[in-house]
Design a protein around this nucleic acid. Sequence first.
DNA 1: GTGAAAGCGCTAACAG
DNA 2: CTGTTAGCGCTTTCAC
Lengths: 337, 337
Amino acid sequence: MDLKALAANLQLSMTTVSRALNGYSDVSEKTRQRVVEAARNLGYQPNPVARSLALGRANAVGIVHPLEHGDVADPRFLSVVAGLTEGLAAQHIDLLIASATEKGELDTYDRLVTGRRVDGFIVARTLRQDERIDYLRQAGVPFLAYGRTADASGYPWFDFDNAAGSRMAVERLVELGHRRIAYIHASLHYNFAYGRHAGFIEAMRAAALPVEPRWMPSAGLARSSGYNAMLGLLEQAQWPSAVIIDNNLAGEGAVRALLDRGVAIGRQMSVIVYDGSPPDTLLNGINITAVIQPAHHHPGRHMAGLIANVLSGDYQLDEVQMLCQPEILAGESDGPC
Amino acid sequence: MDLKALAANLQLSMTTVSRALNGYSDVSEKTRQRVVEAARNLGYQPNPVARSLALGRANAVGIVHPLEHGDVADPRFLSVVAGLTEGLAAQHIDLLIASATEKGELDTYDRLVTGRRVDGFIVARTLRQDERIDYLRQAGVPFLAYGRTADASGYPWFDFDNAAGSRMAVERLVELGHRRIAYIHASLHYNFAYGRHAGFIEAMRAAALPVEPRWMPSAGLARSSGYNAMLGLLEQAQWPSAVIIDNNLAGEGAVRALLDRGVAIGRQMSVIVYDGSPPDTLLNGINITAVIQPAHHHPGRHMAGLIANVLSGDYQLDEVQMLCQPEILAGESDGPC
DNA sequence: GTGAAAGCGCTAACAG
DNA sequence: CTGTTAGCGCTTTCAC
């Protein structure tokens, strides 16, 4: 069932049918009714390929998945994808996932753009200095970043307020009487890690607490490195009384290290983990106090709306820069000093 | 730079240029050289949308990601996606990832098919009875299954020999002198779990060893359930001397349980895990003996080739049903009884 | 308010 | 071997 057949069936021209279906004004309400109903009855589905050709857009956005060597399933990545596809489906936009080639990630962006396979991109996992964003900006390709960069002005993004999350965590610990607070963090090249790190320092200073570099190890985004980082803290002459971990993979590792060393979590050592426990964790017994990015913010939905806006090309920058606030979800992994 | 411009530039007709570029035979070698070179120099990239419209295919395959409630990043799923995109890129086929809607997974397949957004599908994570495969078969939609179903005849698939993997594990343990072998497995609705389970039983019988239901708990695809399953085994009056776990998530949990209970792995209890340790595990100290699906089989590449074949519609069934053999990768988690 | 006709960029008969 | 021509299915001027 194509447009021609539908038009013939209705004894109308393709033009009129097309306009009726696409909600143009210059078609009588009565005709529109007829057309819409017939379309439904006959199961007419416009051919998106033909549509794309005529309109000059692909009706798809791309997301490039970097296949780092030994790369693991990044839960972060997949949850973005999941939320997005759902949100985009409502706008009749497809999500095209491409793997970065060996030649590099930028090359993949280029291929997708010059091949007109997508109208724009989602850039996930932003770095503080992100060459992908530099590239897309200078190439004039529409995109929406999931996370900001060092200079967040001038392009569309969706992000959570990372600094605020850390501040909330510090303030909570300070209220519980802690003064020696450690901080395990991922590479500060990640913008989220940088922001959380900055928020931590800021809050510590505001509380007139010492910011001790030896208590602020870098750990990477992995269980194992969180484990090692925590062991490192435990080997020091003086222990912190609390520790904040800026990502939940390292967080699980860190908690495991405490368990292995027999440290009483919440008593000897208070723990707050950004994003809490990963879903399928082996720490089920322990209810970790967490900085969370509340689900009611529906990142996927928001981002779908934002990217649609971006693709339309008709927007004010401040409409497509969205910052959501995190919250503290109290658990049992922290307590009075 | 479109075909017309390129042709004008070469003083040739679009037809000739098109044929030269698409490797038709009826164009002089000299002309082809010129065309190809000009295309490269001028950076000509065919518009895939126009191409799709003319050819009547989308040049894309779909993969539907079921968004189960609380679904986690499935490493299995992502690694398939990663390998596939790479392999498909070489064939100029895109991978379209769609989330299942609330209305159900089948509905999503239907939407993609009637919308002509894809030419076929990859169906991952097959169940023993899989309604998706039933649906696609009866709808006459091309697809390639990653994993088989109860009845694997009559449609294209790529799979590993699950039963063989279990047999190899059992045989290895038997040679080490084990007679009390336990088996922790995922839901037998998954075809891979069923096959591995069947292979286990078969090999046990072949070795004249007892198949004890109480030593064969079902654990699900999760660290936590593997943990609990192992605890269950340890609570029994008589312990097995070895245990095989049919997936690596549950495997990690099971090993963790042994560690927590202070059981000497490889001495008091031998362990073999299908697929070994997940990449970022907290068991780094332990080198687990594993049944592996060797990387040299390049599942992604193979599947890309197979699906291309399937889409062409011109194939013998036995060319698109591919079974790879697993291997044992010896570690230190098993030893003499 | 409706229709005829000209593309969107490419491929594929069909002639020469 | 090469060019002419007619689509693929839809949108969109431009007339009526």
